[in-house]
């Protein structure tokens, strides 16, 4: 066998153990292998019971996020050979902040529930009839929100966010960025509905701008920036509603 590298993997099999345990595997070391290739090698050749999520292996589906050497990354986009000087050992754990179901699989139900609360779709007060055609948009209008539309729901930002780990009610970075994706879309008319959710303490105000969500984002969505921008918007709205109570809320 060619050179090998050690993967230390956090195993949690609830029918066997109460607490997770570490298990080491030796996998071949190839320059072009991603961490996910190493996991697939284990699953195919060494231990078929290893559980983890993955699908597209090309950084689009957002399902293979894990902690690798303590950092939340997409395992399909992280070279094994670039970790720890390429010698290993490489530590692999499930993402922080989510309860572990088994091995590297976390329960992401909380994220999905929160995502639905901000209504991540285009809301119109009145839909125009089909006969009038599509809602056209200029490149400038697209540029207003395009960055936020790049989010792939991989939840690395949740894993990097200490506030989410400390305050489970916090709606979290990606959900706020996705709310802004629709708020800033000129076709959308739902920003007030979303504001009811976002302007709570567990919405934007729990955020203290640690900034790590943006540092780990594989798609450069910059959720931290989205949150601070929305704080400015919400504050302006609040002062308007207090100083001009006769106007539109």
């Amino acid at each position: 066998m060619a050179e090998s590298i050690t993967l230390q993997i956090q195993r949690y099999r609830p029918e066997e153990e109460e607490e997770p345990v570490w298990q080491s595997f030796e996998v071949p070391r190839h320059d072009e292998w991603m961490v996910l290739d190493g996991l697939n090698y284990i699953k195919d050749n060494l231990d078929g019971s290893l559980s983890y999520r993955w699908a597209c292996r090309m950084g689009v589906c957002g399902s293979c996020g894990m902690l690798v050497n303590g950092e939340p990354v997409l395992t399909c986009a992280t070279y094994l050979s670039e970790l720890g000087g390429g010698r290993g050992p490489v530590r692999i754990e499930p993402l922080t902040g989510f309860p572990v179901i088994r091995d590297l699989v976390g329960d992401i139900g909380d994220f999905i529930t929160k995502l639905q609360r901000i209504k991540p779709w285009i809301i119109r007060q009145e839909d125009k009839p089909l006969s009038q055609g599509e809602y056209l948009q200029t490149p400038e209008e697209l540029a207003l929100y395009q960055q936020y539309s790049m989010c792939i729901n991989c939840m690395l930002c949740y894993s990097a966010c200490p506030i989410y780990a400390l305050e489970p009610d916090f709606i979290g970075p990606a959900v706020i960025a996705l709310a802004q994706r629709y708020n800033l879309d000129p076709r959308d008319e739902g920003s007030e509905e979303r504001g009811d959710v976002l302007s709570q303490h567990a919405g934007i105000w729990a955020c203290t701008f640690v900034g790590e969500c943006s540092a780990v984002c594989p798609k450069h969505v910059d959720p931290a920036g989205a949150i601070q921008r929305y704080k400015v918007t919400a504050t302006a709205e609040w002062f308007k509603s207090v100083l001009l109570p006769w106007g539109k809320r």
Partner: peptide
């Protein structure tokens, strides 16, 4: 199901 929750 018996989830494992790590203390922060």
């Amino acid at each position: 199901p018996k989830w494992y929750r790590k203390d922060y």
